[in-house]
Write a protein that binds this DNA or RNA. Sequence first.
DNA 1: CTGAAAGCGCTTACAG
DNA 2: CTGAAAGCGCTTACAG
Lengths: 337, 337
Amino acid sequence: MAVSIKDIARLAGVSHSTVSRALRNSPLIPARTAQRIQKIASETGYSASAVARSLVMRKTHALGVVVTSIADPFNGEVVNGIEEIANRHGYSVILANSQANPDREVTVVRSFRERRVDGILVASSRVGALYVPLLSELQIPIVLINNHHPSEFVHSVTIDNVQGAYDATRYLIELGHTKVAYLGDRFGLQSDTERFSGFEKAMHEAHLPVRKEFLLRGDGKPQGAMTAAAELFSRPKQPTAMFCYNDMSALGVLQEAESRHISVPGDLSLAGFDDIFFAPLLKPPLTTIRQPKREIGERAAELLLAVLGGEQTEKTVVIRGELVVRGSTARLSSERR
Amino acid sequence: MAVSIKDIARLAGVSHSTVSRALRNSPLIPARTAQRIQKIASETGYSASAVARSLVMRKTHALGVVVTSIADPFNGEVVNGIEEIANRHGYSVILANSQANPDREVTVVRSFRERRVDGILVASSRVGALYVPLLSELQIPIVLINNHHPSEFVHSVTIDNVQGAYDATRYLIELGHTKVAYLGDRFGLQSDTERFSGFEKAMHEAHLPVRKEFLLRGDGKPQGAMTAAAELFSRPKQPTAMFCYNDMSALGVLQEAESRHISVPGDLSLAGFDDIFFAPLLKPPLTTIRQPKREIGERAAELLLAVLGGEQTEKTVVIRGELVVRGSTARLSSERR
DNA sequence: CTGAAAGCGCTTACAG
DNA sequence: CTGAAAGCGCTTACAG
């Protein structure tokens, strides 16, 4: 059995109350006594029980983090940021994958609740809407990442989707493109709606039409985008540029274009969103809106910790993305105008 | 305050012992009473405290998982596998990044210990050797992933590095290559040593020389490989094929080759190890040894759970990788023999 | 079947 | 400064 405070008390010839105080450096205990007790503790290999402490303190110093999949490199970086901040403040991270599966989400939330986590971070944009009612009744502070549904216990940190999409589209327009397609997501995500509205805004501002035949829907992954692109490419009217909901989708378009000998950016300028780590490694390297993933995780954890500390905080933190221009976009050649 | 067993006892007019039994479906309690109590529990939104239960049961149903970085997609998939199995068995995963930083490792282990995790999984090959003494004195069962240092409390699950490297090298030789380079890692990792020995074995078997000038050292990441490749490429003698310690390194070689107009696979056949998710997306797609990452995570978690369940298990599970042939390798053209 | 009691390993108000 | 006591929310052996 692990050595407890009582064992140390016996060895030191004091009460366990005194041991507890000495170990926590209570000002009540004179330095010499404290040192003596601490020495015994370290000699016996004592390790305080966080579970006993949690029970009496009613605070676990644990944060629950839900992601759709931790294998997604995007989430990995966000969680990295979260973990960094949590660690720095003495909090542990309990990780759970929801797999975008509603049953799993319920299980996960129930488990977090039983474990009495002090706060919850949700980094899975697929599910925010579902979570809110479930989470709200928990009375546990929550920070949603890239998904805002503000309510009393729910805060959020998100990328500025409208601005990012606007910046990307605007850039394509500045390159001379007028026939610009938008490849979105079919799951009705808030981020898709917002990115589309940024796209629309840029088009409207430039007095360019948003043509229905240039509005496509993928699934946020290469496969869905390939299918959507294949359908577009087989039609007579073609855009000269395309803004994709995310990089994974742009990747699918790139593969489909390649197999059809459609040159990017020669025939089609392509821009994505996220700047996942292989975006610069693609052929051609992908122009995209960079989300500072790690920073997003850090800010989310900081916000949650601030809320836990009883600080007055803002409900929502919006972080601006950055347009990263690479080789997948080019000026529209004059003969193609 | 959250409702406790006592509150329910009061509402049901029974003792809290009875409530506890009813909630755990003890056979001592008649079905009707149990149902009545359970109904009250659910109406009041009762959630059992895992921390109180952990204290009395001396079991937290929590597993500590250490990774160098969760942002590494390789680790992400492994952790995904771990989490899946843990979840299925009612265990939670406490995640910690070590950042390959010894101080962090000590902190992480201490924190896992204080939290009284039931077992620990270490998925960071960089540090296994350091961990073992630290971990062994914990008396907590441990499973090391891709890093074996067996001892009483330490088990491991690893890819078969020797076999994988042998398979890859053998394949290059079968393509007619005789001048085959090995690009390893400079940190003295066990996996590097093993992969090198698989490479050597294949070369020896084919009676081919392992030339010193074709032995390079990177850092496991694209950057280090680029530097090493740059140096090789600037020398007069060139290999016609190269086996890289991992895909990240192969990626660096690919980039360096491209910038020097060295064709892959025309001038140089290139093979990696891992099959990280963008390997098939590279130009050309990378030939590599696939590690079943998710399965590795699952097997590791299963092994740990078996140990926790007191089962008699094997100390080490070795999983075989699979050669995946793609476009980065080609038969040596006859005029280059 | 059911309750009172003890105990898991701590923290801290209270009394000295 | 220090200890005895109570309590955090549970589980379960013991006695009825």
